[in-house]
């Protein structure tokens, strides 16, 4: 099975379109969206429409999606994030809001688990960026491969034993093996707001037969997306962040 995993679109329709076109050409069987469709970016409704139109798609809830339908308080977020979410709440269509409302926080299938931030407390949205939280995530996930997003940095975390993990940052277009019996956490990076220094849109493609993961980085109209953020009157910092990629 070829499964396209992507997330953290953050209302960036330019990046999402590029990613969806690329995925479609890859002949994937299923799509998995890891949440945070809205927030930061200027095209929340357009992004949700595209995601909803994908065939054989599953999606989990991100913290920005939750905040946009008051399942999570926007006031617990950073100043810029809160500002954009309050702007998004006014903008969301009823259908799109109810789509976000019914998203589950976590999904599993076979030996795969999908969650926006972490599997041990899916609705607390803590980053899995160090050994402590990686070990905690490994302990709670029953499946072998856990796909996460949230930190906007593509990485493969492998559990060596009950006390040790290795972090393998996936830079650029790269192919990694996930064979063997070791548990792994895979961060699929961010479509609409990468923060690993590479401003290109990021998603990953799992091939269960080859037991491999391809990370793809795609060029898209970053300036167009940045312009839209400015035109919508959203914080300027967010458009600069898109261009910088961190």
């Amino acid at each position: 099975m070829r499964l396209a995993v992507f997330g953290d679109i953050h209302g960036n329709i330019e990046a999402l379109s590029a990613v969806v076109d690329h995925m479609a050409a890859k002949n994937v069987h299923r799509y998995m969206c890891l949440g945070d469709i809205v927030g930061y970016g200027a095209s929340p409704n357009e992004c949700i429409d595209v995601i909803r139109s994908l065939p054989r798609m599953n999606c989990v809830l991100g913290n920005h999606d939750a905040a946009a339908v008051w399942r999570y308080s926007p006031y617990a977020m950073t100043k810029e994030a809160k500002e954009v979410i309050l702007w998004t709440i006014d903008l969301l269509t009823e259908e799109n809001a109810s789509f976000l409302q019914q998203l589950p926080p976590m999904l599993s299938a076979g030996d795969l688990c999908f969650v926006h931030a972490n599997p041990y407390n899916p609705e607390a949205y803590r980053y899995v960026i160090n050994r402590k939280y990686a070990l905690r995530s490994f302990a709670s996930a029953r499946q072998r491969l856990t796909f996460i997003g949230h930190s906007h940095r593509p990485v493969i975390i492998t559990r060596k034993n009950f006390f040790q993990v290795t972090f393998d940052n996936a830079r650029g277009n790269t192919n990694r093996s996930v064979a063997g019996k070791k548990k792994r956490i895979i961060n699929c990076g961010s479509v609409g707001q990468p923060r690993d220094g590479d401003p290109r849109a990021c998603y990953c493609l799992l091939d269960t037969r080859q037991k491999s993961i391809e990370f793809h980085r795609l060029e898209y109209d970053i300036n167009g997306a940045a312009q839209k953020i400015k035109a919508a009157g959203l914080p300027d910092f967010l458009s600069r962040r898109l261009l910088r990629g961190r």
């Binding site: 099975m1 070829r2 069987h29 299923r30 076979g110 269960t208 037969r209």
Partner: peptide
Amino acid sequence: YQWVEDFWE
């Protein structure tokens, strides 16, 4: 087959 998708393919 571990996934129906593989079976179908």
